[in-house]
Nucleic acid binder design. Structure first.
Lengths: 143, 143
DNA sequence: CATTTATAATTCAATAGTGTACTATTAACT
DNA sequence: AGTTAATAGTACACTATTGAATTATAAATG
């Protein structure tokens, strides 16, 4: 009995159901792979966004990149800051603004997290070839 | 600037990121379409599982069908029962057990919900043809 | 310049979901 | 039968996320 049979399988609603449950499953797996490092996938995505951004990043921009609301980022950054992973610095050009930057520890954790994620990802996509992954990406973007 | 560009786009991790965010997005849309009926997609899936099951359903079985933990179902059924959508009845064959069954109101709500969902689903899959939907289903099942 | 409008971030209350511990009951095994 | 192990459901504390209200600052406009 695989998970597929536990979902409504008929029609488009069943397909969305499958998408949603598979997304949750994937997130749970990734969270599991990051737990040893004290991270979650959401936290890691925040670090990843920070490391990839050319310029220092304000909280609103970060919320956009993480597809969540500002108040969520406020609390996420609270935690990351308490853990010494990021640092808040005032935006020199806008006294309302706060910029977030990685600490050295944060940079190390991002790297460790990426390694863990690459492992977990290989397992999740064990039965995918390059074509299947490209197809999945193309289809998801259509949504 | 579409959502795709807000996700890490590289490699397998990016693809999982895309899957997770698209799943969340889809759920939010479906929840929105059901809000007028006082439902969420999770609630509707519970009703759907109940309506489709041949025999009366215990909470543990329901938890399996909804891919969540038992305590979650306890609380979900608490709410549904308070709203008059389902009813708890003792399992005649096992004094530990509780079975859940739909009320008449619940049956009506399931139908109303399905109509709302079919609408929302059509919009979400606006740019999908039959082939694309079949491909997506086939790929998600591999995960 | 004064006033209105928009924006950055935070606080707080509410909701959904998880995991652990617990109670009651059933099944399994001497 | 008596003890042990497994199972059904619940209670409760904790986390993640959201949305509304609030404060401070910036931008736009009469």
């Amino acid at each position: 009995m695989n998970d597929f049979e536990q979902c409504p399988t008929e029609g488009a609603i069943g397909l969305l159901s499958l998408l949603i449950t598979r997304g949750r499953l994937a997130e749970a797996r990734l969270d599991g792979s990051l737990a040893a490092a004290g991270l979650t996938f959401v936290k890691w995505r925040a670090l990843d966004a920070l490391i990839k951004s050319e310029t220092a990043t304000g909280l609103t921009v970060l919320a956009d990149k993480l597809n969540c609301v500002k108040s969520n980022v406020t609390q996420l950054v609270d935690k990351l800051e308490a853990e010494g992973i990021v640092r808040r610095v005032p935006d020199p050009g806008d006294r309302r603004g706060t910029l977030v930057e990685l600490t050295g520890a944060g940079r190390g954790l991002h790297k460790a997290g990426r390694d863990a994620l690459e492992n977990a990802t290989r397992q999740l996509f064990a039965s995918f070839d390059e074509d299947a992954m490209a197809s999945l990406r193309r289809l998801l973007i259509l949504l």
